[in-house]
């Protein structure tokens, strides 16, 4: 479970339908799609009529993606080949959207973080986004030294993909960057390299 004492650590209360929204825009990955299936099953017909899904299918075969699309029927599903592509599409929609649009995100933390971030850039309060964490605990980590982002981090510590420093992944989260902070673990003595352990699977 994603629980921690650090205040900046976001919480994900779970998806629930907004019966009044004029438009329900849902972004999810393969694991998050299961939460969306449950949401759609629970919500009324009106919700379904006003809902559309952007599915990030970077870890799914085209058969798996098609199967998920079928499970979500009759909700309209757009399949995006990567998180970046999905977020680009989301930004496009939000830039012309009206009040009454409700944003949902389900899946890994980097996905949720990117959706909340794109929402905030388009004036949506982070607390207005309904979120549910599903699947991998992998994190997006920003190196506090070189400011580079390392994606899909499962181990702690982790080597920065940009400057190569060994980073301790903290629970300190930046909503603006949609990333956790990584701080050099062996600044005093670079020869002291603790073995990375899988922590965020």
């Amino acid at each position: 479970m994603l629980v921690s004492g650090i205040k900046s650590r976001p919480v994900y209360p779970g998806l629930s339908p907004d019966p009044n929204a004029r438009r329900n825009l849902i972004v999810c990955d393969r694991a998050g799609a299961e939460a969306v299936v449950e949401l759609v099953a629970r919500a009324g017909e009106d919700f379904v009529k006003r809902a559309s899904v952007i599915l990030v299918a970077d870890d799914a075969s085209s058969e798996e993606a098609a199967a998920l699309q079928k499970k979500l029927d009759p909700v309209h599903v757009e399949v995006a080949c990567s998180l970046d592509a999905a977020i680009a599409q989301l930004r496009e929609i939000l830039s012309g959207a009206s009040m009454g649009l409700r944003l949902y995100a389900a899946g890994s933390e980097p996905l949720i973080g990117s959706v909340v971030q794109a929402g905030a850039e388009n004036f949506i309060d982070p607390l207005s986004v309904r979120t549910e964490h599903r699947g991998s605990l992998m994190r997006r980590v920003q190196c506090v030294h070189c400011k580079g982002m390392t994606e899909n981090v499962v181990t702690n510590p982790v080597k920065c993909a940009h400057c190569g420093l060994l980073l301790l992944v903290r629970d300190h989260y930046s909503r603006r960057l949609a990333a956790f902070q990584g701080v050099c673990i062996n600044a005093e003595d670079p020869s002291d390299s603790p073995e990375p352990k899988v922590e965020f699977q």
Binding site: D18, N20, A21, R22, R23, M99, G100, L101, R102, I124, D125, L127, S128
Partner: peptide
Amino acid sequence: ATLAGWPDES
């Protein structure tokens, strides 16, 4: 406002 689909935060 709620019936117009406005979120509480707005």
